[in-house]
């Protein structure tokens, strides 16, 4: 069974350690969460896993084979997909074409890509958006299109970078059920980075907590809820995120 792992990853930017010896496993059908205060290194880790950032030390392995020297498009072709904070849609293209791009990027013909794109939009429940220009979409639709674009070719793994940022409670709940379907129906291994800790605790099978570039705790949602270290990290370092986390944890 496919298995994506980050082993002892360290990243330093001009001497500043963004990540130190981070180890993380993602398995098909499982939803993993990555939480931590702002600046903890969460996005950097996703960048390392998808080939956008070379680690200073350590390696990324897919089924035991190292991916560390591959370019982002090569990593994607091996079935490791990602989304970005803020969507990053191809704004001048139609929604359906946004999805089609991944199809052709993976080597499909345009015919095959458009067929899968239509099916994917339908599966996500946004087929009505297909003909719209991506640049005209409201925020939440943008996120769902970005997820659809990442799911083209049915990757083995998908890494979601703050997919619920700026969403209302109802929209976040809808997103949760979409993420569950991605793991269950597509058999995809999901890694979700989120500031909405309540959403992560309710959704994930396994959670990793990063603080200042290091893993300070990992475990099931129940274990994370009870962790003194997590409580301390949030209360002690990031006043702005302390409140919502405290509400969930206490």
């Amino acid at each position: 069974m496919a298995h994506l792992s980050a082993d002892n990853i360290s990243v330093a930017f001009a001497g500043l350690k963004a990540l130190s010896s981070v180890t993380l496993d993602i398995r098909p059908g499982q939803i993993s969460g990555l939480i931590g205060p702002n600046g903890a290194g969460k996005t950097t880790l996703v960048n390392v896993l998808t080939g956008f950032q070379m680690p200073t030390e350590g390696s990324v392995n897919l089924d035991g084979k190292p991916l560390t020297n591959l370019k982002p498009h090569q990593v994607r072709r091996l079935g490791i997909a990602r989304t970005f904070q803020g969507g990053r849609l191809f704004r001048d293209l139609a929604v359906i074409d946004n999805l089609e791009v991944t199809g052709v990027g993976l080597g499909m013909s345009r015919r095959a890509a458009v067929a899968e794109a239509e099916a994917m939009l339908d599966w996500i429940g946004i087929s009505a958006l297909g003909g719209r220009a991506a640049g005209t979409l409201p925020y939440t639709d943008e996120r769902r299109v970005a997820i659809g674009r990442a799911l083209m070719g049915r990757p083995a793994f998908i890494l979601l970078d703050e997919p619920a940022a700026g969403m209302s409670a109802q929209e976040a709940t809808d997103l949760s059920s979409l993420v569950k379907r991605i793991a269950r129906d597509l058999g995809c291994g999901v890694l979700i980075i989120e500031h909405n800790v309540g959403l992560v605790l309710g959704l994930c099978d396994h959670i990793v907590v990063l603080d200042s570039g290091a893993v300070i705790e990992e475990g099931t949602p129940t274990e994370i809820r009870q962790s003194e270290k997590v409580r301390h990290a949030y209360m002690g370092t990031a006043a702005d995120t302390a409140l919502p986390v405290a509400e969930v944890l206490l």
Partner: peptide, 25 residues
């Protein structure tokens, strides 16, 4: 209208996202 043309226009709009979509820019 070719695959290459579509992939290139995507890279024009958002090179980072295009690479993450498997496009060899």
């Amino acid at each position: 209208i070719s695959r290459s043309g579509l992939a290139l226009r995507a890279a024009r709009d958002e090179p980072t996202a295009a690479a993450a979509s498997g496009v060899d820019i």
